[in-house]
């Protein structure tokens, strides 16, 4: 019971505190009645919006692909994206390392929620507390992959992803920084990203195997 009393205090989302956190965003993003697209898109009416759909903003191919694949902005996806943008969208234009403090994130989300057209209509399924932590464990990122093993495993990738770096319809995966590669595959493995083929492929890859693939593809020239 004592614990139950303590929880709301921790999970309370404070838009006023969120406005302070937003200072880390506003060199690129605007929000409010007079907002327009700058380096990043306008953040009004964000909740329930399909990723990559703000009119007039030129998104990265990866953001457009995720949007077409079903990525929508809800508290859980926003939380993951703000924590580490590359978890959800590998080559997003948002060059931002992320906000690691979960309280800051939930306050920021509460702040942004005020600019959604009808916050009362946000589906109840959208949790106010985000229970997940999609960013990749540093220990996993620290694994050194065996490129020879990666070369063998890559056969499963190259049926679809072209080794010469061609990216019509299916993204290129050559020449990536291992941290981005590993982050992306773990996001599929943990189902933070939706693509069913990639969820299936990643599901049976161990942490070592993902590191091996990252080590192999890193050195394939585009």
């Amino acid at each position: 019971m004592m614990l139950g009393m303590a929880l709301p205090a921790f999970s309370q989302e404070d838009p006023v505190e969120g406005a302070k956190v937003f200072k880390r965003c506003f060199s690129c993003h605007m929000v409010g009645p007079d907002a327009f697209n700058r380096t990043g898109p306008v953040l009004n009416d964000l909740f329930g919006r399909r990723a990559g759909t703000v009119e007039g903003f030129k998104y990265s191919d990866d953001m457009l692909r995720e949007g077409a694949g079903g990525l929508e902005w809800h508290p859980d996806t926003l939380d993951a994206f703000i924590e580490n943008p590359k978890v959800l969208v590998s080559r997003t234009k948002m060059r931002f390392s992320g906000i690691k403090d979960p309280v800051d994130r939930s306050n920021l989300i509460a702040f942004l929620r005020q600019y959604s057209d009808s916050p009362a209509n946000i589906p109840e399924a959208d949790p106010t507390i985000v229970p997940r932590d999609p960013d990749v464990d540093p220990e996993i990122l620290a694994i050194t992959g065996d490129p020879d093993y990666g070369a063998y495993l890559s056969g499963e990738c190259t049926t679809c992803h072209q080794v010469d770096g061609g990216d019509e319809g299916i993204p290129s995966i050559t020449g990536w920084e291992p941290v981005d590669f590993v982050t992306a595959l773990h996001a599929y493995k943990n189902k933070h990203r939706k693509h069913p083929v990639m969820q299936m492929m990643a599901a049976r890859l161990s942490d070592e195997e993902i590191a091996a693939l990252a080590a192999y593809f890193q050195n394939i020239e585009q």
């Binding site: 190259t158 049926t159 679809c160 992803h161 072209q162 010469d164 061609g166 990216d167 019509e168 299916i170």
Partner: peptide, 9 residues
């Protein structure tokens, strides 16, 4: 994209 990938493979 897959067609391009598999035929290259």
């Amino acid at each position: 994209g897959w067609y391009a990938g598999i035929t290259a493979d």
